[in-house]
């Protein structure tokens, strides 16, 4: 046996490699079946960063489809509700350049919440069908109202309303939600530019 190997080193090498290759190949094949990843993990991570308003402003029917599209190479700047912070987070995750928001899909506005002028509501349930998060309460021929805490401000309910009784109201700042603003950058001003103190006080 040893002699045979010594006499045919070339064939012996090929044989040895084959011998090694078969079990390793089987192992890999088994692992590929056994540890198969369900779904697209990248799309899941991207989806976790999207604001989940399900507004469709990105031209995809919801956040999940857009996340899948991004995973397949779609631009990351099509989400107005997420705005700059979402773009930055996506850029971080995907290791791409952060780009400004694509104005074609809307601008980053103040957060809003839908409000139904209840006196004008005719109870058609069209907005209820449009709401992606079931944030509108009502029944046929009954007045509808928005559950404020559940509304994502996607404004999908505004369009279907036949009597235009839905307003998108900006979320008001309360004492609880109030916060300090980031200081306005005013550096590089020389000291002699100092404004009159009385004016500042006023």
């Amino acid at each position: 046996m040893i002699e045979l190997i010594q006499q045919n080193p070339f064939i012996a090498a090929i044989g040895a490699l084959l011998l090694l290759g078969v079990p390793f190949g089987a192992l890999l094949g088994f692992a590929a079946v056994k540890f198969k990843t369900e779904g697209d993990p990248i799309a899941d991570q991207i989806e976790a960063l999207l604001p989940q308003t399900q507004c469709g402003q990105c031209s995809y029917p919801g956040c999940r489809p857009y996340a899948e599209a991004i995973a397949n190479g779609e631009a990351i700047n099509k989400c107005p509700p997420g705005g700059e912070s979402t773009i930055n987070a996506l850029a971080d995750l995907l290791d791409v350049e952060a780009v400004p928001l694509d104005a074609e899909h809307g601008e980053e506005n103040v957060k809003t919440v839908a409000f139904i002028r209840e006196a004008e509501c005719i109870g058609c349930t069209k907005c209820i069908q449009a709401c992606p998060v079931d944030a509108i309460l009502g029944a046929a021929k009954q007045m509808h109202t928005v559950i404020k805490s559940e509304c994502t401000g996607c404004d999908l309910c505004v369009e279907p309303c036949p009597v235009d009784c839905i307003d998108m109201l900006p979320i008001e700042t309360t004492l609880q939600s109030w916060s300090w603003d980031l200081p306005k950058s005013s550096e590089n001003i020389i000291a002699t530019d100092r404004t009159n103190s009385k004016e500042v006080a006023a």
């Binding site: 989940q52 919801g62 956040c63 998060v133 559940e150 980031l182």
Partner: peptide
């Protein structure tokens, strides 16, 4: 920044909640 981080956490929570509802 602290307020913004808090807000982002709230937003993330809300997004999670919205997703579940969706």
């Amino acid at each position: 920044s602290k307020a913004e981080i808090r807000q982002q956490k709230l937003d993330a929570e809300k997004a999670e909640h919205s997703k579940a509802r969706f």
